[in-house]
Design a protein around this nucleic acid. Structure first.
Lengths: 134, 134
DNA sequence: GCCATATATTCGATTATTCGAATATGCGAA
DNA sequence: TTCGCATATTCGAATAATCGAATATATGGC
């Protein structure tokens, strides 16, 4: 059985949603947390495994996990002395994959055109700029 | 003609990539910037239009645009007195859509199960928790 | 009860982000 | 040139994020 939930979307709710979405992005805005999420791609892992795989201290990993848990991005389940973490919604990795690929393409472009950069940034009038005087 | 760029990926580069990805997410981690990106979905818009559509002061919009430009998420092109901004890579919206839908689903679940929350959070031993004592 | 292991939390210093206010620049018209 | 509009930038204060260090809690075994 599937449930369909309809949500009334007012303009204020629209802004609340942007706020929540920003909060979600903020939670993704840390290299360690991104690595944790990626490590959880194929299933649950205990803190120790995450700590060893990332090479980061346990306390730091737990701090990041606490944030991810609070924002409901991961969930922890206790098995004896250890707590295994898993993704609440695997779609988070789809979003990460997209940003990752965008970055790789961008790096490839910049790497290829590295020699052109000096020339391109001279374009002054009527040109298209990504970061220049406007 | 299509170019294929192969990138050698060492472990350090892998970490650099996480850092860049985190930086990209950080750039998305602001409600105003998210709204700007969404407004640019159907094409370029001048600053004034963005300022009016969002209801935010022009200086604030320009500040956010400067960040987005610097991170190469948007580009600005001057037409006379105005500067029209557009998305550098439309895939950014795909990523935003995913996080948005994740959030909507999450809200729907929480809204539906609102009455259960008190009960569920009592689960102590061996239970699955998103944010509780572990 | 105690111990060892695994995990969580608190604190404080450092650093980064956001915003409004004020100001500066760029452009076209007269 | 000067004006007026569109956009950009700088500054400073308030707020928030990150990390290491230290400490606290939970669990199972004895």
């Amino acid at each position: 059985m599937r449930k369909l939930v309809t949500v009334m979307m007012t303009h204020e709710r629209e802004h609340d949603l942007y706020r929540l979405q920003a909060e979600l992005c903020q939670t993704l805005a840390d290299p360690t947390r991104l690595e944790i999420l990626r490590l959880l791609e194929h299933g649950a892992l205990p803190v120790k495994a995450l700590s060893e795989a990332t090479g980061q201290r346990q306390a730091k990993i737990s701090q990041h996990l606490a944030l991810l848990r609070q924002r409901q991005i991961v969930r922890g389940e206790r098995f004896g002395a250890e707590v295994r973490y898993s993704l609440t919604d695997p779609r988070i990795l789809d979003a990460c994959r997209i940003t990752r690929e965008m970055l790789l393409d961008q790096l490839a472009r910049q790497g290829t055109l590295a020699g052109m950069v000096a020339t391109t940034s001279e374009t002054v009038r009527g040109g298209v700029n990504t970061d220049a005087d406007l």
